[in-house]
């Protein structure tokens, strides 16, 4: 894990609880992400997902622990780590196109105006935005179109790590479906590493190579790392037919519904590292392998 492209080492976040004591959101959380991987993190509100995201983005500092990318410790925000926020990540006084050129011009300061604009238009086109729409202000775009612009801006900058903070949380289910597919389409043409927060189990299965599961806070931990053993390219209507789909889905539902609460609130010993258990569910390897369904491998 220490050799991963992105390694999170013994991350701890504590806040003063207002009564002179301290409130620990999570403690000694450690996990790694490989280059080109798409990782989703699932967990209930308050478990510190967004805090981890902000630390990865460099927008806030952890109480303890380090984040290393390519072997170097992360400090402060950087163009190497692009972020798509749930809301308000577009500047409302700029058109869709200008919002993207804003990012591209920051990423490639030596480029000419024309180069910046060409690249921006190309990436907007990749997420299905072209023509008139790109000259509109965010307020004149639907919620789905706005997030498409955010995604185009993030991908156009080719960050080493792309962080998505519940990017589709505010969208209706149908729009969410189409944009998830747009995202997969844009992502599959790259070796972009993506770390995404979501509340939506089906979304996570559709998108991710691996899903990290967090227990409830306070004292949350990243308890499991579930591999999604469904081959790509994935299409929403096809993957539900895959034998692994419901097995994985049930495992996730069970975790979020029951075990996330049961595992919560354990105080760790000094210096203990909490690495997630790798869980691999695969029912395609014949009936012989079907038992035990759940193979837990301690890494």
């Amino acid at each position: 894990m220490a050799n991963s492209f992105l390694s999170i080492e013994k991350l701890t976040q504590r806040y003063p609880d207002g009564k002179g004591g301290e409130f620990t959101v999570f403690e000694n959380a450690s996990f790694g992400i490989e280059k080109g991987e798409f990782v989703c993190i699932l967990g209930h509100s308050g478990c510190g997902k967004s805090t981890i995201m902000n630390i990865l983005a460099g927008l806030s500092e952890p109480t303890k622990g380090v984040v290393k990318m390519d072997g170097f410790a992360v400090s402060g925000p950087s163009l190497d780590r692009g972020v798509v926020f749930q809301n308000y990540s577009l500047l409302p006084w700029l058109t869709a196109l200008k919002n993207v050129t804003f990012g591209v011009a920051a990423r490639f300061p030596d480029w000419t105006k024309q180069q910046v604009e060409d690249r921006s238009i190309a990436f907007l086109d990749k997420v299905g935005l072209s023509g008139d729409a790109i000259h509109r202000k965010p307020s004149q775009l639907s919620g789905g179109m706005r997030q498409r612009v955010s995604i185009a801006r993030a991908f156009a900058n080719e960050p080493k790590l792309l962080l998505l903070d519940e990017p589709f949380g505010a969208l209706d289910a149908l729009t969410r479906g189409t944009i998830q597919e747009e995202l997969l389409k844009v992502w599959s043409g790259t070796d972009q590493t993506v770390f995404m927060i979501t509340h939506d189990i089906d979304e996570a299965i559709l998108l991710a190579d691996r899903i990290l599961l967090m227990t409830n806070g306070p004292l949350a931990r990243v308890a499991e790392s579930v591999e999604i053993t469904i081959p790509r390219p994935r299409v929403r209507t096809d993957i539900v037919e895959h034998p692994n789909y419901y097995a994985i889905r049930n495992h996730l539902v069970q975790f979020l519904g029951k075990r996330s609460a049961e595992l919560a609130g354990q105080v760790s010993a000094e210096g203990e590292t909490h690495s997630p258990q790798t869980v691999r569910i695969d029912k395609t390897r014949g009936a012989a392998d079907e038992q035990p369904l759940l193979q837990a491998v301690k890494t």
Binding site: A57, L59, L79, V83, F85, S89, L91, F102
Partner: peptide, 10 residues
Amino acid sequence: DWVNVARTHE
């Protein structure tokens, strides 16, 4: 959030 957009774009 807008200031964070500026920060993440260095």
